[in-house]
C-alpha cells in the first residue's frame, strides 16, 4: 500500500471512529457526578396544646408532626394500634401508662383536622 492510500485509509478509519463516537455521545451523554452538601429544612408543624401534647413530643424523635396531623379521622383504637406499632416495631419510648392519654389526644386532634 502506498503512502497516499495508507493515509487515506487512516483518515477514513478516523472518520468512522469519530462518527460512531459522536453518535454514541448523542445517545449516551456522560453523567457528571459531583459531591453534595445540602441542608434539609426543619419542620414548622407542631402539635396543638392539650393533654397529651407533651407525650406526643416523643413522636418527634423519629418524624415531624405532619405525619400525625395529616392522617384521616382515625378512632382511638386505631390510634392505639398505630402507637403500639411505633413502640413495638420502631422502639418509640412511649410508656404503657401513656398510651391512653396519647391515643385520646390524637383521636381528638385528628377529628379537628378533618374539616381542613
Amino acid at each position: 500500500m502506498n503512502t497516499f492510500s495508507t493515509t487515506l485509509a487512516c483518515m477514513l478509519a478516523a472518520l468512522l471512529v469519530a462518527g460512531s463516537a459522536h453518535a454514541q455521545d448523542a445517545k449516551q451523554k456522560p453523567i457528571a457526578i459531583h459531591s453534595v452538601n445540602v441542608d434539609l429544612p426543619a419542620s414548622t408543624a407542631s402539635f396543638p396544646p392539650g393533654p397529651g401534647s407533651d407525650v406526643a413530643g416523643k413522636c418527634l424523635i423519629c418524624h415531624s408532626a405532619g405525619m400525625v396531623l395529616k392522617q384521616p379521622a382515625l378512632t382511638q383504637d386505631q390510634w392505639k394500634a398505630e402507637i403500639n406499632k411505633m413502640r413495638s416495631t420502631y422502639g418509640a419510648p412511649i410508656l404503657d401508662s401513656e398510651v391512653e392519654t396519647l391515643s385520646t389526644y390524637f383521636a381528638g386532634i385528628s377529628q379537628q383536622q378533618q374539616s381542613r
Binding site: L40, A42, S43, T44, A45, G66, M67
Partner: peptide, 9 residues
C-alpha cells in the same frame, strides 16, 4: 406538595 418534613415525604 409537603406531606411530611422529616423524614421527607
Amino acid at each position: 406538595i409537603l406531606l411530611r418534613t422529616r423524614p421527607p415525604m
